[in-house]
Design a protein around this nucleic acid. Structure first.
Lengths: 341, 341
DNA sequence: TGTGTCCTCGTAAACGTTTACGGAAAAACG
DNA sequence: CGTTTTTCCGTAAACGTTTACGAGGACACA
């Protein structure tokens, strides 16, 4: 059914070697012959068998992105990733690479899937997201000598891999600055409970900024929960119990903010009026919520493109294609002022 | 670096044929030998090269899910798909299959990517989502004789493929019934502008139910827009311009509902008080919105599992594993009554 | 004509598996 | 002990590519 390079060769009365060379654009083939091969390939609807090719070449010409649902009830996904993946895929496609997303089961934290991808050589490199403070995946990959790049920083694995992250520290600080400038001094922070690195970075920025303003950090105003609507909903009331109520809340995640605002609404507290609310990572949800939530927006699609570039530059097969080989980059988050603070 | 079956054979002083047979659980190998092979495999951290294996077997042992961002500004993704994919992946993993998600560029409607997957034989079968009324992907796959299954119905390609869909028709009708029972007669419907089949099905149910109640269908109460927050936001005001204002709106999508509620809020109209709102496909957003939105909930994860089963049953290599081979199933949507209607 | 260079192509090996086939040894059977 | 069956394993081909190597012919040059 599927036509192979042999069919093509037979059809043209030339050897498979020549066909292959013609298709792969090598120099040592007559321009005329190449033309005929290309035409025949189109006519016979030929396209090379990926397995045969990658077996011979030792590379799969595809990059794997590890997507994994977090544990927790009703785990819907991260709308977040789609624009990022769009950028990633666009840039990879430019270099003829395919992007495949491998799904993991919720909660297993991908170790198993990752091993599978690496060991069966399904991809030439992987892209990790949601890096943790100490990330065993990174340790595993560096030890295995498998090429990878990360969306997000980590303390694991040295620095010998490309990584791209958002400046959550600065965003946390900026949020505090903004709120302080508007007269707030009781500022709560709500972040994910997992040891996702961006949660730490955010809190660091938050703490430092408070101290800079001479405001004591009150542990009663800091809480963490599942990184979804339910988490925000269940944990927000906790900071409202502080002896001295907060007048502002910074949410480290849009879904948590949604849940948190729900909790506030049930307490009769109106975001943007009775309580200032700022969200660290903007999504369409923030914009269309009522009141529209002030949030920090990342440039997700360009980030995807950039990380693809960085990864490509780190791959021997593609090295030299790009100029600078920056290893780690931290991108700013842009404040979008809306109505909630 | 990576150990091959030859290393294993050399290490054990037996032939590669025996190693392969031992690993693949064939009968004609001594229990003792098999044991030794398995141990050595674990010790040498051997796992078979996927390319070699699939080249020989002619199958990749993986299923592709085609994920594609829709055109439109700020296209964030569908949280929707994650639970579905989780179920799909879980069931496929049970049969030793990998799930890979293939990203397309926004707007190209996947034809190109799909061809690529099929022609390079990257997967043994594909799963399509967001089926259209007439779906060229389905035509292509049936013509190519490539195995596939769809999440969603279509009029294309006959019925010789497994498909699983939600009963949008009934949900549309149920929503109308519920609103009519509560005294509404001016009921608007807002749905995606693309020719996604579920938009049609929903509208069909909506229309039929209205007629059944003796209510004339007013085209001024039906509108469509981009299937995202912006679409809902921009299109909702249109139905408010009808000569006789609606007292209820049914949204065919949660994101559109969010945008629509925003538009209502700006007009001083409060969902659940001044306007009844029902959403057809429930997500956490609906639950945590204020007011919580009455919505119809799908069983996404079981659906993923079920579609995987149906697909497997249709594959020659797995046939007989399952009992019944239902070709098409339509699952109900469960009404979750909340505060918005 | 002899020699060397260049262009183009065919040959064959290799990538890592799986599996049909056959053969040797062991077991079963009379 | 001879014959048949069974058990186990090695051999080698095949899957569809890519690519190193070398050969043949054309051409240039002396």
């Amino acid at each position: 059914m599927a036509s192979s390079i042999h069919d093509l060769a037979r059809h043209l009365n030339i050897s498979i070697g020549t066909v292959s060379r013609a298709l792969n654009g090598r120099a040592d083939v007559n321009a005329d012959t190449r033309q005929r091969v290309l035409e025949a390939a189109k006519k016979l609807n030929y396209s090379p068998n990926q397995s045969g090719r990658s077996l011979r070449r030792g590379s799969t010409h595809s990059i794997a992105f590890m997507l994994q649902p977090h544990p927790g009830d009703q785990q819907y996904g991260e709308p977040f990733f789609i624009p990022f993946l769009t950028g990633l895929q666009a840039r990879l496609a430019e270099s003829g690479l395919d992007l495949i997303v491998v799904m993991g089961a919720p909660g297993d934290y991908q170790q198993e899937r990752l091993r599978r991808v690496v060991e069966t050589r399904r991809a030439d490199a992987v892209v990790l997201a949601w890096t943790r403070r100490e990330d065993e995946r990174i340790d595993y990959l560096t030890e295995a000598g498998f090429p990878f790049a990360t969306l997000g920083r980590s303390r694991s694995g040295g620095t010998a891999y490309p990584s791209l992250d958002l400046d959550f520290e600065k965003a946390g600080a900026d949020a505090v600055d903004r709120l302080v400038a508007r007269g707030h001094r009781r500022i709560a922070a709500i972040r994910p409970s997992l040891d996702l690195n961006f949660g730490y970075l955010f809190l660091d920025g938050y703490r430092k900024a408070l101290r800079r303003h001479g405001i004591e950090v009150d542990p009663g105003l800091i809480a963490d929960g599942f990184i979804n609507e339910a988490g925000g909903y269940s944990v927000t009331p906790r900071v409202m119990l502080a002896k001295d109520r907060p007048t502002a809340i910074i949410f480290n995640n849009d879904a948590m903010a949604l849940g948190g605002c729900k909790a506030l609404a049930e307490m009769g507290i109106r975001p943007g009026k009775d309580m200032a609310v700022i969200v660290i990572v903007d999504t369409p949800l923030c914009r269309y919520f009522s009141p529209a939530l002030t949030a920090f927006r990342p440039a997700l699609e360009p980030m995807g493109q950039r990380l693809a570039e960085m990864l490509l530059a780190s791959l021997p097969a593609f090295a030299g294609e790009e100029g600078p080989r920056t290893i780690r980059e931290v991108w700013p988050l842009e404040l979008i002022a809306r109505e909630s603070d």
